[in-house]
Design a protein around this nucleic acid. Structure first.
Length: 299
DNA sequence: AAACCGGGGCA
DNA sequence: TGCCCAGGTTT
């Protein structure tokens, strides 16, 4: 008669087995991807995946890496080319951060993406998630990797709550306590938790009937209570400054490499003050550049 | 801790 | 229409 399964094994083993059979075939999970681009490929993919869904990232990722296959190659590019190549991925400041990170990697790390989490955290645009994702998925080290999917899986399977609370260090601590001891097993556990949250334990209508953790899930055991959505509603996009910024930047991308006359930038925009505010903020962010009466992508 | 930052897909 | 997305930075 075997003893009661270790609480970690109770989730680790079914999750790992499920992942072997259910993991999507994504570019950054292929052997050739790592052979060709090493940790740089993982880093670029993680930048693009920050708040942009997987399916929208894939074509952009391949085009980006084909053009700039190393940190040194990207570091030598102009900001204008970088912002233009980023296209409509959204949150264009990420493009500048990635460019800056490439320069930092070239200057401070001899063109090699660092392996150390603290070194990764010092790079532009890299926070808790991305630093650990690179260390784990590119280098195979043992760290907790916690994204929005993992936080939801932990909230339900472990804490018995329908939705995660606001992000905090506790997420990392909890995931750290659950990680298998072995490096490779820990990496699979990290990836599997994210995959489960992305494909089964999804935000709106979780597919519990397909979940490998249904036997031990605290939320299911509690009768799937609606514990209330603690997240904050995002402000409306229509009529927002973000929409104005996006419209200006799209115009600059379409005109590139040429500059445009300031007077010709969204002359019909409903709120001229908002348009001017958008232009100023883009310049402040380094996403646009003014030269006299002309506006363009940053040189 | 909260605000800000794009854009598209889907119910 | 509202919700969601392999987050990070700034205040």
């Amino acid at each position: 008669m075997p003893s009661t399964p270790h609480p970690i094994a109770a989730t680790t083993l079914p999750l790992a087995e499920w992942y072997r059979g259910a993991a999507r075939d994504l570019p950054w999970r292929r052997r050739e991807f790592h052979d060709e681009y090493a940790a740089w490929g993982t880093l670029v993919s993680e930048f693009m995946l920050q708040q942009t869904p997987v399916n929208r990232v894939i074509p952009h990722l391949e085009a980006w890496l084909a053009r700039w296959p190393t940190p040194r190659a990207l570091a030598a590019a102009s900001p204008a080319d970088v912002v233009h190549q980023w296209a409509n991925l959204g949150y264009p400041r990420r493009a500048l951060w990635l460019h800056r990170a490439a320069i930092e990697i070239t200057d401070r790390h001899d063109g090699v993406v660092p392996r150390d989490v603290d070194a990764l955290l010092k790079l532009s645009g890299i926070g808790d998630y991305t630093a650990r994702a690179v260390a784990v998925f590119a280098y195979g080290d043992r760290h907790p990797v916690v994204d929005t999917n993992t936080r939801r899986v932990l909230a339900r399977a472990v804490l018995g709550q329908a939705q995660p609370g606001s992000p905090s260090r506790r997420d990392l601590d909890l995931m750290d306590a659950m990680l298998p001891v072995d490096d490779a097993d820990a990496a699979v556990f990290n990836a599997a938790a994210m995959e489960l949250g992305a494909t089964v334990c999804i935000a709106r209508a979780p597919r519990c009937e397909a979940c490998p953790l249904i036997e031990t899930c605290a939320w299911v055991a509690a009768g799937r209570p609606d514990t209330g959505d603690t997240r904050r509603r995002q402000a409306a996009f229509e009529g927002s400054d973000r929409q104005a910024r996006g419209a200006v930047l799209r115009l600059l991308r379409d005109a590139a490499p040429r500059a445009v006359l300031l007077e010709t930038v969204l002359p019909e925009w409903p709120d001229p003050l908002q348009r001017d505010r958008a232009i100023d903020s883009l310049i402040a962010d380094g996403l646009a550049e003014a030269d006299g009466e002309m506006l363009s992508l940053p040189r």
